[in-house]
Design a protein around this nucleic acid. Structure first.
Length: 284
DNA sequence: CGCCCTGTTGGGGA
DNA sequence: ATCCCCAACAGGGC
């Protein structure tokens, strides 16, 4: 379930545990994790260096190490980070030995997750700049900024939200959640949204993400929570994964379609279908 | 038991 | 820009 809120939750839990401590050693157990780089390249770059900050950019968790070395990790679909005293776990892909004895374990059943070392601030910024748009929780993510970004675009609004180059960190679940809250049909051309709808969408994106962060998430600490103890975020969502169940606003059944290649849940009544023949605000 | 489909992501090719 | 497939695996429906 790693979208922006889950990564941010992990970051907040990890920061006080890791910041200021050294990485005594890194073991990359699956070479695919860091392709096309060699595991030894990551292990050598990280070994012995102090973690100055645990940061997040979009869905990436970033260990900012001394000497301006950055390790950006992406959990993809099933990746997970666990703070543990154990050296072995099922689906272990990479293991950090942290000064003081704890281990930071990167677990990933499907092995889609990645780790990349970025040498220098410029390299780090360049890496993110070509992949990620603005952070939705930054103060400058305003309705006007979003409007400027959407104008003239014909992509379905859901595809726009999922595109990390447009907005960083919004995934399939929070995209549906935001559209439901803003009462916007997922297939509406994003450029056709009126000013008030753009404003509603901005607010809904921010509110959905913040709600996700506030929701009690799974702890990454071995001691407070053991393995499968994941909070059921599912219950927090208003439409996602609830095909056929009644819309919380109008009671009509939630529908499922495919949008931008992903399963998409919405209320066909609350979120009006795009009007044919009016793709981009006919006027103006 | 086997087969088929789906999936919290993102990159690549047509 | 857009659709489709792929990565590797688990779980559910039939």
């Amino acid at each position: 379930m790693p979208e922006l809120p889950e990564i941010e939750t992990i970051r907040r839990q990890l920061a006080p545990e890791l910041e200021g401590r050294r990485v005594e050693q890194l073991d990359v157990l699956d070479a695919r994790w860091c392709e096309p780089a060699e595991p030894s390249a990551l292990e050598d770059a990280v070994r012995g260096r102090r973690i100055e900050r645990v940061a997040r950019r979009g869905k990436y968790l970033v260990l900012e190490l001394e000497d301006d070395i950055h390790l950006a990790m992406h959990l993809r679909m099933t990746g997970n980070l666990l703070l543990s005293h154990d050296d072995e776990r099922p689906h272990l892909r990479a293991r950090f030995l942290i000064e003081g004895g704890k281990r930071l374990l990167f677990l990933d059943v499907r092995r889609f997750g990645t780790g990349v070392v970025l040498l220098g601030r410029e390299a780090r910024d360049a890496y993110f700049d070509v992949r990620l748009g603005p952070e939705p929780l930054d103060p400058d993510f305003t309705a006007e900024a979003l409007r400027a970004q959407t104008r003239g675009r014909t992509a379905p609004v859901k595809a726009f939200l999922l595109n990390q180059e447009r907005i960083a960190g919004v995934g399939n679940i929070y995209a549906d959640e935001a559209l439901f809250r803003a009462k916007i049909h997922p297939l509406r051309p994003v450029g056709a949204l009126r000013r008030p709808q753009v404003a509603a969408l901005r607010d809904a994106v921010v509110a959905s993400l913040e709600a996700g962060i506030d929701a009690k998430g799974a702890s990454i600490d071995d001691f407070r929570h053991s393995d499968g103890a994941e909070g059921s975020f599912q219950d927090e969502f208003l439409a996602y994964g609830r095909e056929g169940e009644p819309c919380v606003r109008c009671g009509r059944p939630i529908r499922k379609i495919r949008a931008a290649g992903r399963g998409t849940y919405f209320c066909a009544y609350c979120q009006r279908a795009p009007r044919a023949g009016k793709a981009l605000g006919s006027r103006r």
